[in-house]
Structure formats: structure tokens, C-alpha cells
Design a protein around this nucleic acid. Structure first.
Length: 294
DNA sequence: AGCTTACCTTGTGC
DNA sequence: AGCACAAGGTAAG
């Protein structure tokens, strides 16, 4: 199927920028998995035409956030020359609407790991616990169900390279299963309330909660503060923060919950309701600069 | 409440 | 080739 776009969108950018881990480019197509769907999609020569198989137009529109008004979002968050450069360089970068369950487990697995390792771990979890499907003469594995991960052993998960995170994944899965929690319903809660609920899961801190809120629960003001964002705030936004606070942050690598929330709140006040979009542009901008330099 | 420290394993850079 | 060191942080003390 084909879809003519009448809005800015860059497929490659949106799938490469670190928000989603199980989409792979092969033979000029992106192969993706979401819930029970396996599909491929491409955007030839960055044109305004998307081609895809395995899904319909409605799904594409929702999954890739094509209804987000990027023009308005850019105007809202464009507060200074630094983010302006990021917005300019990465036009068409959109926030994807991931499945909340997979997103939750993904970011529990992602703590203190590099992206290549995260991708490998999630592939192994899916391969060992998920349903195998064939699409386009290739094998894919759906992300395991809540029940499957609730019933597996910590040892099985450790075999997927999860290390100390295995017990968190298992405990969170068990909790979602035992209490029959519908993560989709968190969309209807306020940002603060939903964050509180996510924070209760084992292995979920403030950062993971914000990632799940931003990437799967439509909370565009969620502003995950990881090591990259912390550096960005200290390097480019220090004059917006109190000097004592900045000095304190510079002395340590990790953030206390209090420090995290302070940075998060600053960003939400500064960038506004679409702070999460600002976060994604800043994150990708800083990482791409580093990669080109090395 | 706020601050340290340990933590599994893999990828990356020197 | 091999070894430090960092990696989309969290939980326990």
C-alpha cells in the first residue's frame, strides 16, 4: 500500500533516533513488529510517499504520530539557538506510539546499557519467549505476552543477557499479570498520576517512567533525563539553573530523584507542553554530534 | 529527605 | 589482541 504524506515526516530519523529498539532496516525496507503485527515500510529518497505491507493507513498514521502537528510543536519548543539547530537538522523526526507493555519492559531492560546491547537483549527475550511468525520469507518473533513473562523464571531471563534486570522484568510482569493491569488505561490518567503508577513497578525509576509515558502513553510533556540530557542541560542551559545546583550536579554522574525532578520540571516549564519532543530532538542531536566526531 | 554505592553484561575505544 | 571503561539508572543502605 501507499500513502501520500501532506505533513513533514522522516521515517529513517524516527526509527534511528533511539526511541524504539526492534525495528531493523533490511534491503531498503524497515521491518517492524508491534503487538501482533509484523510489517515493512519505506520512504523512497525521503519523498512524501510511504510504502508499506502488513498494516493499513490508519495504523501507519497512529504508530508514526503523523497527526502530531510538527509545525506547531517546533514553534512551541523553539526557545533558543541550540534547540533551533536540532530542530533544523532533524526535520520530520516524530515520536512513535509504541505498545505500552513492550515499551515498559524495554526500558526496564535499557537501564545502564548501550543501545546495541539493549537491542540484542530484547531480541533474545522475544526469540525465547515470544511467538514466532513468518513474514516476507523471514522469521520474526512477537514480543512475549504478559502471561508468558509472568510465568517464566528469572534464570530464563538472565539467559537473555539481562543481568540484574532479570528479576525486575519478571516481577513487573508478574505484577501486571496478577493485578490484571491495563497499561493502555494509563493514557487516561494525568501525567503525574500515570508517572506515579509506573514508578511503583520494580525496576522502574523516574527516568524509565518518563520514557514509557513519552513513547507509549501520549504524554508529550514527559522529559526523560538520562546521562545525555543531563550533560546537555549542564552544557547549554546552565545559565537557566541556579549556580549551586549546577555545581552539585557536575560532581556526580547519576541523579538523585530530587535532582531528576528538578531538571525535569525546569525542562517542562522551559519547553512547554511538548517538552518530550524537545527532549528527543536534543538527545538525537547531541548523540549524532558525538558519533560524527569519533 | 538526601546522599553513596553496588550492580550484570555487553559494546566500544584505545 | 586484550583490557579498561561506559552504557537511555535503580534500589538498598
Amino acid at each position: 500500500m501507499k500513502l501520500e504524506l501532506d505533513v513533514p515526516f522522516d521515517l529513517n530519523l524516527s526509527l534511528c533516533c533511539g526511541q524504539i529498539f526492534r525495528c531493523k532496516k533490511q534491503d531498503n525496507w524497515w521491518y517492524c513488529i508491534s503487538e501482533d503485527k509484523i510489517f515493512k515500510i519505506r520512504q523512497i529518497n525521503n519523498s512524501n510517499c510511504l510504502e508499506f505491507e502488513g498494516i493499513n493507513t490508519d495504523f501507519v498514521t497512529t504508530f508514526f504520530g503523523l497527526k502530531d502537528n510538527l509545525t506547531e510543536i517546533e514553534q512551541t519548543v523553539n526557545k533558543d539557538s541550540y534547540i533551533a539547530a536540532a530542530l533544523e537538522q532533524f526535520k520530520g523526526l516524530r515520536l512513535i506510539r509504541q505498545n505500552p507493555w513492550e515499551c515498559l519492559i524495554s526500558f526496564i531492560c535499557a537501564t545502564y546499557k548501550n543501545i546495541a546491547a539493549i537491542e540484542q537483549t530484547l531480541f533474545k527475550i522475544s526469540q525465547t519467549h515470544g511467538e514466532k511468525k513468518c513474514f516476507d520469507d523471514r522469521n520474526f518473533w512477537l514480543f512475549p505476552s504478559v502471561e508468558k513473562l509472568a510465568r517464566t523464571s528469572v534464570q530464563n531471563l538472565e539467559g537473555c543477557g539481562l543481568g540484574y534486570r532479570a528479576k525486575y522484568v519478571q516481577a513487573t510482569a508478574k505484577r501486571v499479570y496478577d493485578e490484571q493491569i491495563d497499561l493502555e488505561c494509563f493514557k487516561h490518567l494525568s501525567y503525574v498520576e500515570a508517572k506515579k503508577r509506573l514508578f511503583e513497578f520494580p525496576g522502574v525509576g523516574l527516568k524509565v517512567a518518563d520514557c514509557v509515558l513519552l513513547f507509549s502513553l501520549e504524554k508529550m510533556k514527559a522529559f526523560p533525563v538520562d546521562i545525555w540530557i543531563k550533560r546537555i542541560l549542564l552544557n547549554y542551559y546552565a545559565d537557566q539553573l541556579s549556580q549551586g545546583f549546577v555545581e552539585k550536579l557536575r560532581r556526580h554522574d547519576s541523579l538523585s530523584n530530587g535532582e531528576y525532578e528538578k531538571l525535569c520540571l525546569f525542562a517542562q516549564n522551559y519547553f512547554g507542553d511538548y517538552a518530550g519532543y524537545a527532549q528527543e530532538y536534543l538527545y538525537h542531536y547531541e548523540r549524532s554530534k558525538k558519533q560524527m566526531g569519533s
